[in-house]
Nucleic acid binder design. Structure first.
Lengths: 88, 88
DNA sequence: TCATCAGTTAGATGGTCATCGAACTATTAC
DNA sequence: GTAATAGTTCGATGACCATCTAACTGATGA
């Protein structure tokens, strides 16, 4: 993991809403975007923005299936991040 | 560790300069402020600001000895943070 | 007592970013 | 085709914050 990617992820995690989204994605094998829209107090535009950030930081994969978008944690990246962070 | 403290620490770590400072502190048992001033490309005012953030987030202890300030990582808080984060 | 050095505080500034509404695309249903 | 639904994109806005300079405190040494 490069320093740039590491800092990118740190920044992405620093927003509580985004962290919560990632946490929700991680708890399921795969999560549909619409499941998040139901109970998060943000507009679809904001949610879309956060998912883009998570995705371009490399933390999640996004898959489109007809009308719906499904997200998945990228375990390897997440483990890499934890391991880099724990080395401080 | 409360959610508030967790998010506070996440935010503190998100700034690369501050992360580097914390990293330097962690590598030694105790680090003098003046050792950081030497080779960080920031003014004393900015350094002081970052140390205050790290300290009030609970990540470091600061000790004043005559003219000098010494910092130390609070291992327990750091380990708590890592453990909370790894649970996502 | 005076100069110097370590560090802090206050206030200003410029940049970043979470958020929104509005307009859009694309898909499904009737 | 037309309406409804899922999600995106764009531009604007307001808040937050890293950084600086300048002025300060407090300790050391001459």
């Amino acid at each position: 993991m490069t320093k740039a990617q590491f800092h990118r992820i740190s920044k992405v995690l620093a927003d509580p809403t985004r962290y919560q989204i990632l946490s929700r994605i991680a708890r399921k094998d795969e999560l549909a975007c619409i499941e998040l829209r139901c109970d998060l107090p943000i507009t679809p535009a904001t949610l879309s923005h956060h998912l883009k950030e998570l995705s371009s930081a490399g933390l999640i994969d996004m898959r489109k299936s007809s009308k719906f978008v499904h997200m998945k944690l990228r375990d390897k990246v997440w483990k890499d991040y934890l391991s880099t962070l724990s080395r401080l």
